[in-house]
Amino acid sequence: MASEEELFASVDALLNEEPQLPPPAERARLREAAGITQARLAAALKTTTQSVKNWENGRSEPKSPRLDA
């Protein structure tokens, strides 16, 4: 059985990895579950609604600093 220290080290390692986005359809599902429109998300990220649509249908991927946000 793993010790508490080993478990914390494993979680820390995960948090230090590059951010990984869920698949496009899951991105939309998560946004909708939070009750956020594409327009509101676009405004918060200072981008266009079309960019959010593209991220959610797999046509493009967000880049830093939006990816980090």
Rank of each mutant, 00 (worst) to 15 (best):
L67N: 01
G35K: 02
P24Y: 05
D68C: 09
R40N: 11
A2C: 02
N16K: 13
A2V: 08
P24L: 08
A44R: 10
L67A: 01
S51Y: 10
A13H: 04
N54P: 06
A2F: 07
A25F: 09
L7E: 04
L21N: 01
G35F: 03
L67Y: 03
L15V: 00
E18D: 04
A44P: 02
S51I: 00
T37E: 10
S3V: 00
S51E: 15
E56W: 14
D12T: 08
S10M: 12
E61M: 00
N54C: 12
A44K: 07
E32L: 15
S3M: 09
E4G: 07
I36N: 07
V11F: 08
R66N: 05
E26Y: 03
S64F: 07
S51T: 13
R29A: 13
E26C: 03
A28P: 13
R40C: 06
P24E: 01
E17G: 06
E4C: 03
W55R: 00
M1H: 14
E4V: 09
A13N: 03
R40S: 13
E4P: 02
E6G: 01
R66Y: 01
T48C: 01
L45R: 00
L67S: 06
L21H: 02
A33P: 04
L30P: 08
L7R: 05
K46T: 05
E32D: 13
E4A: 15
